[in-house]
Amino acid sequence: MGKKLIGPIVTVLLGGAFVTVLGLLLHQSLSPAVAARVTAATPPSATEQHHVYVHLDTYPDSMAGEHGKDGGAEPDWVSYGPGTNINVPAHSLVTITISQYDGGEAITNPWFAKVHGTVGGTETVDGKPVTQIDPEAVGHTWTLHAAPTAQDPLFVSAPLPAVPDDAPIAAGSDYPKPIEVTFSFHTKGPGKYIWNCEFPCGDGYYAKFGGPMSTRGYMSGTFTVS
């Protein structure tokens, strides 16, 4: 009896091991998260414990992002940096500042040229508060969606104006002087969210949502509230 069992059991174990190895190879290895800088010792309001700051950049290529030396596998791809996975505490005020180095053009859906879901419905562009930007000159957007799970819905979308094509290259840099966009919003309970860019800025032959737009770690990322 024992002998008869060994064969099937070994087969099952080998099969299980095969699938496990395959799974470990494919298991999504999230790159290190961009930790939010917690600054305020005093809570911003009675219900919120923290005010946190996150700084992101958008580059026209992958040289400066998280993709390693020389831009990794796809150096020409547009990307967010320094990382695309963001961790913030629950019930806090989050202020995100994005240095936008990239150009752009008309957006397909002008609704995303407006600011949605931020404190006061505004963002500041180089210090000036605005509720929307010119839909003909959008560089990127930073758009946060709720994942389809039972967690508090969170929708934030902030458009980033395009850097003009004729902008001069800044001294000591490969890029022109960035446009600084800042906006704030409140997080609710813990949850896992995703964010991405809703301006078609990827390569790819059709609809420009291929390449960096459809690959993890370039123009999309996770947003974890914990």
């Binding site: 799974g23 494919l26 298991h27 999504q28 999230l30 994942a147 799970t149 039972a150 896992k192 459809s214 690959t215 993890r216």
Partner: peptide, 11 residues
């Protein structure tokens, strides 16, 4: 589980 995060969306 609803949000296991075992495989990324691309994979």
């Amino acid at each position: 589980s609803p949000n296991s995060g075992f495989l990324g969306p691309q994979t």
